[in-house]
């Protein structure tokens, strides 16, 4: 069961440049590690992270094994519209995790 953290600053006003930080549990197994018996541990990574405000895509990241485990990703958003932010992480083996947060800049 994945656990995610999302930080959206409080008291944002229209026109602000808002930094949104995200963090999620995921081993981001590269596929290059070997276990104690010398057997390669298969690759298991997050492949995509996308953020939509209402229904519009505002940010996306395509991820590769070179992204560290328990990925931290931060990006910016110009506070113009209000609505709901939907954060979606997808990965190998059918992994998917969705979080939603309200986005409500003061006028």
């Amino acid at each position: 069961m994945a656990k995610a953290r999302i930080n959206i600053p409080r008291n944002i006003r229209r026109g602000d440049l808002v930094e949104i930080k995200t963090l999620i549990t995921h081993p981001m197994e590269t596929g290059f590690r070997v276990d104690s018996l010398g057997v390669k541990i298969p690759r298991n990574i997050l492949t995509q992270f996308s953020v939509a405000l209402n229904d519009t895509l505002v940010f996306q990241a395509d991820l590769q094994p070179g992204i560290a485990a328990n990925p931290f990703i931060s990006f910016f958003l110009r506070a113009e519209q209000s609505g709901q932010l939907t954060f979606t992480w997808t990965g190998q083996h059918g992994f998917t995790h969705v979080e939603t947060r309200a986005f409500d800049p003061a006028p």
Partner: peptide, 15 residues
Amino acid sequence: DFANPGLLWVDSGRT
């Protein structure tokens, strides 16, 4: 306080 990866487990534990 946000990005310390160990805090993800603290969140899990609290849940």
